[in-house]
């Protein structure tokens, strides 16, 4: 099993990931990171770890890791 990790401090709130996510699993809650941007969050129930968010992100926010059992 794989899991999407979000490095929220890198996020600049461009929303490319939200626009490109085929499952609508990403959203912005409104919480703000240290740089002052409302960062992206993921709904793990909807996420299929396809990796499109990783590909379209200019700021290296996403990582797909092996889920710890």
């Amino acid at each position: 099993m794989e899991k999407l990790i979000i490095h929220k401090e890198s996020c600049k709130s461009c929303r490319y990931c939200i626009e490109n996510c085929p499952k609508g699993a990403l959203y912005i809650k409104g919480d703000i990171n240290e740089k002052g941007y409302p960062y992206v969050s993921v709904d793990h129930e909807k996420c299929t770890t396809c990796g499109i968010c990783y590909n379209v992100c200019p700021d290296y926010v996403f990582e797909i890791q092996e889920r710890e059992v």
């Binding site: 794989e2 401090e9 890198s10 600049k12 709130s13 461009c14 490319y16 941007y37 770890t49 396809c50 990796g51 990783y54 379209v56 992100c57 200019p58 700021d59 290296y60 996403f62 990582e63 797909i64 890791q65 092996e66």
Partner: peptide, 27 residues
């Protein structure tokens, strides 16, 4: 499919939000 940013992109880039340079640096 496991994904991790390449080792060369070792710190956050300094481009504006939404700038394409970040994606191209990573590619």
């Amino acid at each position: 499919m496991l994904k991790k940013k390449p080792a060369a992109c070792f710190v956050d880039n300094k481009y504006c939000p939404g700038c394409g340079h970040g994606i191209i640096n990573r590619l």
